[in-house]
């Protein structure tokens, strides 16, 4: 009996899942990475004939790549800042103040997610067409801003609500004004979660493709939009591969930071699971 308890059974199911998922998930990405560090890879060789960073130089020398990087970073920064500016006070209000229509307004942010997003984008685009916002920077900013609202309100609301009221009261008790309590107690306590929300909104905006393509193209060309045109029109495979690796950097940063947030389960609950 005692031996049975100590003996560890080989987890064949787990090994199976790990192997299959490794192939399905990791392998395609590995192929792209390999292409990005390849100088020559002719069919039908299984491995590239010549490795090298020639195409990194070539890609980084292209003006359209640099302008798309600048455009993507500018857009994502502007949208995230605007979103934080309008959403964080709103989140605080939802979490801490009482006002008429609080619940219905809170859930109104779900409206954008109850419809197929692309259909909604087309409907918005039809309105932007009349407002001459198609093909403009601020048109894309607006459409991406709407996409961040749910995240940037719901996650900080939860963060503010999880701050123990008595912590805030204790600060009032030792002489802090309400504004001081918010600055010295509430914000630092809610800080990490809010930072995660801001990061998510930045990354989400950075990779937002549909809105930028529908509203912005061809004048506003972000990195994902450029990537689409590379896929469609660029015969040199390595350009796309290098751009993919570049494009993945923000996601990698998000991956490092958001790991804890996502595995905690509260993330999935946010999606109604």
């Amino acid at each position: 009996m005692a031996r049975l308890l100590v003996e560890k059974r080989t987890d064949w199911v787990g090994i199976g899942f790990a192997a299959v998922l490794s192939i399905i998930i990791v392998f395609p990405l590995l192929v792209v990475f390999t292409w990005s560090v390849t100088n020559v890879w002719r069919y039908p060789s299984v491995i590239p004939q010549e490795f090298g960073l020639r195409f990194w130089q070539a890609t980084l020398a292209r003006a359209d790549v640099w302008s798309s990087i600048t455009m993507s970073l500018t857009l994502a920064t502007v949208v995230t800042l605007l979103s934080a500016l309008i959403c964080l006070p709103a989140a605080y209000a939802f979490a801490r103040l009482d006002f008429p229509g609080r619940s219905i307004l809170f859930f109104s942010f779900l409206a954008g997610h109850a419809f197929p997003k692309f259909g909604l984008l087309v409907a918005i685009a039809a309105i932007f067409l009349q407002l001459n916002l198609i093909g403009t920077f601020w048109g894309v900013v607006l459409i991406q801003l709407v996409g961040t609202l749910l995240f940037m309100i719901w996650i900080p609301v939860a963060a503010f609500q999880s701050v123990d009221r008595r912590m805030e009261e204790a600060a009032r008790d030792v002489g802090a004004s309400p504004a001081r309590v918010f600055w010295s107690i509430t914000l630092p306590q809610a800080g990490p979660t809010i930072a995660a929300a801001v990061l998510l909104s930045f990354v989400g905006t950075f990779y937002e493709t549909e809105g930028a393509w529908l509203i912005g193209a061809p004048q506003i060309r972000t990195m994902p939009v450029l990537m689409i045109s590379f896929i469609n029109n660029q015969p040199v495979i390595q350009y796309g591969a290098v751009l993919s690796v570049l494009l993945w950097i923000p996601s990698f940063v998000a991956l490092l930071f958001a790991r804890r947030v996502i595995s905690s389960g509260s993330f999935a609950r946010g999606f109604g699971a």
């Binding site: 008595r166 912590m167 204790a170 008790d173 004004s177 107690i185």
Partner: peptide, 15 residues
């Protein structure tokens, strides 16, 4: 914040 009282909370409410 303007009262000369000091409160100890049930859940200690330390920052």
């Amino acid at each position: 914040e303007k009262r000369p009282t000091g409160m100890v909370f049930q859940s200690h409410a330390l920052w």
